[in-house]
Design a protein around this nucleic acid. Structure first.
Lengths: 215, 215
DNA sequence: ATATTGTAGATTGGATACAATCTCAGTGTA
DNA sequence: TACACTGAGATTGTATCCAATCTACAATAT
């Protein structure tokens, strides 16, 4: 018998996740200084896991680490947002193209059901979660750690909670997801990628005017 | 008077560089296990900097880190190479497009002189170094840490020493560099990016048949 | 009063020590 | 012989400690 090996939970990973979410949610503000000892105490661990977590976040581009000085939360300019969305528009369809051929019928069923549930969901929290699962699953056919690493690094830069700020985001997304999904089911890779790209592009265009970013 | 601030050298960075080069040069073979204590002893440091270095290399995609098990050097398949070059073909012109408007006249002079020196160079070692500086400098107008991080992560996956394996690589590159350079000087961004892209694409095509990769 | 220097406290970098976990050879059993 | 088990050694994960460095404020000089 073959069991899927348990992902052994390791402290730095948990710490990383907690800090990453705090930054993306805005609990930790840009330019804010992150003191290892304080974080360690708050989380009830030693400084060591915190140090590793900060290192990870630096490589993900969320914080800046300066030798002997410490970590500060990176701030985002409009140019950053633009850049992030342009990169997503490139990378995610690129990945989708390699993912579709490897999606099994169970995956398609699952995608379908996620989509149907989203159609009936009005709770924003739930929707954000379903939406992430939809996107992740559709890209999951590509096994390339390199691609998934790059995408994580790009999209971690910005909160994944556009439904919170864009009016009608849910309705628009549902429509776009429907088109992506049917293209995937029809195995029309080219079309699916194009629809996926315009989904991201539209989100970008809707998002920009809503942001009041300084600098 | 204004002094250039000293770049404070920190141990993990040195360790990372040493390990990265060892992997790219092939001194550390794919699937080889990297034991922290051994590396630490060889380098005359404690395990702590080594741990950080391995973490960096993991996020760069050069090694895989499994909890409680350790680090092994990642191996490359043909598909990986293809993917790396396709990504470079996308990312580097994307960056060049944002870089050219910010290149000063000193940068152009420097590029010119690098190119001229390359024309006269037959030493492969020297050529590889000049070539790297040429590429880095041309992309240096983009200040985006995100882009440079992504590119580093992509190209660190593969040795930058194609002149060692591709016959006539130097001659072909010189010709292509000339075209890129003149487009940059003419401030023809579109053309420069196109030439840059086909430079990478040609290298990819020349490289593939020369590699005897298992798997 | 302002600018500069000196100093103490805070904070990070790196080393060491210990705990948790894994690996693997060796043993016993069917 | 083949297989499962066991336990010692190896290796990684985490905590703690000390040194290097930075920061901020107070003392001093101009």
């Amino acid at each position: 018998m073959k069991l899927k090996s348990v992902t052994r939970e390791v402290l730095p990973n948990s710490v990383t996740t907690i800090l990453r979410q705090a930054i993306l949610k805005g609990d930790l503000k840009p330019e804010e200084r992150l003191v290892q000892a304080d974080i360690a105490e708050q989380l009830g661990v030693s400084r060591m896991p915190v140090r590793e977590a900060l290192k990870t976040l630096e490589l993900e581009g969320l914080v800046t680490l300066e030798p002997h000085k410490g970590a500060i939360v990176n701030s985002l300019t409009i140019e950053d947002i633009d850049e992030i969305y342009e990169l997503r528009t490139i990378l995610e369809p690129f990945t989708l193209e390699r993912s579709i051929p490897n999606l099994g019928s169970e995956d398609l069923t699952e995608l379908e059901s996620l989509h149907e549930t989203m159609l009936e969901t009005t709770e924003i929290e739930t929707y954000v979660d379903l939406n992430n699962r939809f996107h992740n699953l559709s890209l999951s056919g590509s096994k390339s750690k390199r691609l998934h690493g790059l995408m994580a690094r790009v999209s971690h830069g910005i909160a994944k909670d556009t439904p919170y700020v864009i009016p009608d985001q849910i309705e628009k997304s549902n429509e776009e997801h429907a088109r992506i999904l049917s293209a995937i089911k029809a195995n029309d890779i080219e079309d699916a990628c194009a629809e996926y790209a315009s989904h991201i592009k539209r989100t970008h265009e809707d998002l920009i005017p809503l942001l009041n970013l300084d600098k």
